[in-house]
Write a protein that binds this DNA or RNA. Structure first.
Lengths: 396, 396
DNA sequence: GGTCCTTTGTCCTGTGAGTGGAAAAAGTCG
DNA sequence: CGACTTTTTCCACTCACAGGACAAAGGACC
């Protein structure tokens, strides 16, 4: 079918589209309660939106005591593609215009293999979703990559863990292939946007979203918007020094947080513990799989393995130290912990909490929730869909 | 004389007032170049502003090749009061509507003596400035205090170094006494606003302003606006851990940056060095004055005293460590160093720079200037004037 | 089913913001 | 002094928007 190409003509229409996206189908009257426009003006703008095809009528709403109103909703055929490229996996999902996930595929893939191979994979996954009948085409796509991005152009800049991606025109290329608008951002920022849209961070203006995966990053939301920094590298907390003169890090320094705690570091620690015979649980897992990952540590910890619990606790403490500093500095209203190692769950969370509450001033921590992300692996793709929808639902 | 009470009636007028404040007298035509309004509309709004008395005609502008235009400027009788309450001193200044300092007084005063005593002093200083003929009254006042502030209400909250100030209605009380609108903020935020308005940070959207005085704080500017955090304590970096298991700090933790480097810590270190006979220079100064402060350290360092240079260098390194973390996290476009110990000058700056450039990733530091503040002790009062002018030059 | 009230949706007119052209006013330059 | 610029004022026209009037549609109660 023909894809939608219309964009809102003014700020009012943009506002209405976002309300319908975030609040689902709504009657004109309910919309009127939220936008502070006269009924006449509202009717005009809604009619225009109906003309563009971006929104459609959707039956009658329940009565609120008088005449029943006709519901309005975003066109149900609209489709967004959300892509979350992690260090070792790719997530691709299709959503409708309300950013509900209609289909979601995950595949392991090393981002190190370079943009060409990854792109091929992403396109194959998108094609698969299309083939399964979920979409006949995409009205827009958002994509997250595990490194800094020059946001306006949608191009990765000097990404440490993505050799070959520096300067690769991700936005341009994907837009070309998919035939729709594309926006690119750091994966951590997308996770933050995902949790903001549909997760724990709804209605919080200033919060931090710490993602602990292969590396560690932090999404920063200020006044409801993502802060990307001057060069797009804001939130790159993996290389903050957590241990003076600590372990050497790939970045050339010593004691970086990421060198002491992250998916990669955890796997290395686990391997060492297994080889030195400190943990029976880990050793047997090593024997079976031939390798160890953070998942093994999580499983062993869940089974009560003391070494693994210690590893997690120590990592949580290190992470908590860094977060404590950030909390003092930024004074957020919420801290969300997410990413691959959320499987470590409450042991990790408890360690982080303890450290933050101990080390930051009471005024900053007094009413500061520190919680796990609610959306798990879907946070990134929802955030990606949100990114492109924010773009498309803004006046051209 | 009668004070101005008018406020801009709409966003256009607000815009024009701010242009006149930041750019000085301007012709209608020049204003037109900047605001993207039709000539007619502009003329209407300017006329209305002239009617309110907020702006006045100011002679003819130089010709740009044709008819000479009439200049417009903010009413020259407008006066703002800028108050900067530090831990150990008070600065009060009068500015005109263009935020140029017309008079400036500094007096030593311990903020510990409580709000009543400090207020008395501030009012006396304001009266002195009035008496010297610089102002017949004030159209607005901005005031900075050395601790967290609940910004909307203008009330200090749980300020560690300001016993007796917790919950004191600073805004209310000062407004009462001066008979004009008042806004209250953290002194560090005001310093940042000052440097943004008239100092090194002009035209930088995202920057950090680190103030090293009796304590250490950091003003955070995001997208041109000050970030105050959820509880008003954003930028409180003095209690970030700089040295694991380091010196005990008044806050109850160990190793806080402030415990290792700040005006207070420096004085303590100097005293110790003098008493242990490590520095002849310091010992003789101690003998003369009976006490040592950061100023003595600065002087001794300038005279080449090795112990003092070491103290400064070590402090700079510690500070640099913390700033490096913040730079990685926030990715600012500029870092400004200011506050009382700027007397330590380039020794300090060099140490901070070295550490930041060494410890942060190249992408974040690549084009990152780290500079000393340009305004010195006037940054705070200019920022205070800017705070209230921003308030008054916004639609009611 | 009838009456009264509430809510929703449409129509219409008045108002005020804002645009853009024309012309007057005030200069510069040769 | 005349040709050309720039600034400023004036005016007619457009458009966005508010808000009232009214019709349509439904619920509650009798």
């Amino acid at each position: 079918m023909r894809r939608m190409t219309a964009r809102p003509a003014n700020a009012h229409q943009a506002r209405l589209l976002k309300l319908l996206r975030d609040g689902g189908p709504n009657s004109r009257a309910q919309l009127g309660d939220q936008v502070d426009l006269s009924r006449s003006k509202l009717a005009v703008e809604v009619d225009r939106l109906l003309e563009t095809g971006l929104v459609v009528a959707d039956g009658l709403a329940a009565s609120r005591g008088g005449r029943r109103s006709h519901n309005i909703r975003l066109a149900p055929e609209l489709r967004f593609l959300g892509v979350d490229i992690g260090a070792t996996s790719i997530d691709v999902a299709v959503t409708n215009a309300e950013l509900e996930i209609l289909g979601h595929i995950t595949q392991p893939m090393e981002v190190r293999e370079g943009p060409v191979a990854v792109f091929e994979q992403v396109l194959a996954m998108a094609a698969k979703l299309k083939a399964s009948g979920l979409a006949e085409g995409f009205d827009g796509a958002g994509i997250g990559v595990p490194g800094p991005v020059r946001f306006p152009e949608g191009v990765p800049v000097a990404p440490p863990i993505m050799p070959g991606w520096d300067g690769f025109p991700v936005r341009e290329a994907l837009s070309q292939e998919l035939g729709c608008p594309v926006m690119v951002d750091n994966d951590v920022n997308l996770m933050a946007m995902g949790e903001q849209h549909a997760g724990v961070a709804r209605s919080v203006a200033d919060f931090l979203c710490v993602k602990i995966g292969t590396g560690i990053g932090c999404g920063i939301v200020v006044g409801g918007g993502v802060h990307r920094g001057t060069t797009g590298s804001a939130g790159d907390i993996g290389h903050i020094q957590a241990v003076p003169d600590g372990r050497p890090c790939a970045c050339g320094n010593r004691g970086c947080l990421e060198a002491h705690f992250s998916g990669a570091a955890l796997a290395r620690d686990a391997l060492e513990a297994a080889q030195q015979g400190q943990s029976v649980e880990l050793a047997s897992r090593l024997e079976v799989n031939g390798t160890l990952t953070a998942v093994d540590v999580a499983a062993a910890a869940a089974a009560g393995d003391a070494v693994c619990l210690d590893l997690i606790r120590e990592g949580g403490t290190r992470t908590g130290q860094v977060i404590a500093g950030l909390v003092s500095f930024f004074n957020p209203g919420l801290v969300v912990i997410g990413g691959g190692v959320t499987g470590l769950g409450h042991t990790l969370l408890a360690a982080i909490r303890t450290q933050v509450y101990r080390q930051s001033l009471p005024l900053a921590t007094g009413n500061l929730p520190i919680v796990l992300g609610e959306l798990g692996p879907t946070a990134g793709v929802i955030g990606a869909a949100r990114l492109i929808s924010d773009h498309l639902f803004s006046p051209a």
